[in-house]
Computed example of a mutant assay.
Amino acid sequence: MSGFQIGKDILSYVAVGDSFTEGLDDPYPDSADFPSGRYRGWADRFAEHLARHVGELRYANLAVRGKLLRQILTEQLPRAVELSPDLVTLCAGGNDILRPGSDPDALADAFESGVRRLRDTGADVVVFTGFDTGFQPVMKHLRGKVATYNMHLRAIADRHGCAVVDLWSMKIFQDRRAWSADRLHLSAEGHRRLALRVCEVLGVPAEGDWDEPWPQLPPSPWRQARQEDLRWAREHLVPWIGRRLTGRSSGDGLAPKRPHLEPLVRR
């Protein structure tokens, strides 16, 4: 990235994407400042780190859970371009990859069109590869498709001068404590660590080590592990499949949590 720098009097940052960037499952505590049901996530956490090193950080988060790549490009990208920020984080395509018949080559072509539009505004752009799904039995079969998409994303980043946050190489995400109960979204600790990794990629000082080893846990008994798998399938997998079959999305009717560039209060 050529132009991004901290220490400015005013810096603007826009986050674009789906549930990953909206912040599921990292809820803010109930309070007057953070209404129940609003998620924090790595993007908010990264913005908090960034705000400590600029005179004023103006931050918008346009991400909405469940959105496909084409929806992000048509619903969020025009708004991001209109805001003309200094920095944009873009993660999109994960929900498409989960769907049978999706083509990572075609997805990459569409993704590049979005990157090009953002870079034409003069914004620095950060892109994210997909996670390595090899450790998740239910999604292990998607590993080749994710890897193909990742190679495209890296090439796109090279062509357009974007920074890359390589989620595939982050082995800490192969621990179940990095994930929430639905096994699709990061836990609060997963989001915290990812925010630190984004800081590292962009050269933003932050306390903490995203790659700190997880404390040792005793192995779960076989019966307990199978019971947890059954509970997960009943409470999370079956509803997810139901939404896919009926064409519904978890984000239907939802608006972005931070649609405007607004000053972020330092904490």
Rank of each mutant, 00 (worst) to 15 (best):
M1E: 14
Q5L: 13
L11G: 01
L11A: 02
L11E: 03
S12H: 07
F20C: 11
T21M: 03
D25V: 14
D25P: 05
Y28C: 08
P29A: 12
F34H: 15
G37R: 06
G37I: 06
W42D: 13
A43N: 04
A47G: 05
E48M: 13
H49F: 12
A51T: 06
G55Q: 10
E56D: 09
A60E: 03
A60H: 08
A63T: 06
R65Y: 09
L68G: 05
R70E: 15
T74F: 07
Q76H: 07
L77I: 15
P78R: 03
V81Y: 04
E82C: 04
L87Y: 00
V88T: 04
T89E: 10
G93F: 09
G93T: 05
N95A: 04
L98Y: 06
R99I: 09
R99H: 12
S102G: 05
S102D: 01
P104R: 03
A106E: 12
D109R: 15
G114N: 06
G114R: 01
V115N: 08
D120A: 15
D120Q: 14
D124L: 04
V125N: 01
V126H: 02
V127G: 03
V127Q: 03
T129M: 01
T129H: 00
T133Y: 11
T133C: 14
K140E: 12
V146N: 15
V146I: 14
Y149R: 06
Y149M: 10
N150F: 11
H152A: 10
L153G: 05
R154W: 00
A155I: 08
A157R: 05
A157V: 04
C162L: 09
A163W: 02
L167E: 08
M170N: 07
R177K: 11
S180Q: 09
A181H: 10
D182P: 07
L184C: 07
S187K: 07
E189V: 14
H191T: 11
H191K: 03
R192V: 13
A195S: 12
A195W: 01
R197H: 15
V198N: 01
E200R: 08
G203T: 00
P205M: 03
E207M: 10
G208M: 03
D211T: 09
E212Y: 02
Q216C: 11
L217I: 10
L217W: 10
S220R: 15
R223S: 13
Q224W: 11
Q224G: 08
H236G: 03
H236E: 07
L237I: 07
V238Q: 06
W240L: 13
G247C: 03
R248D: 10
S249L: 02
G253D: 05
A255H: 02
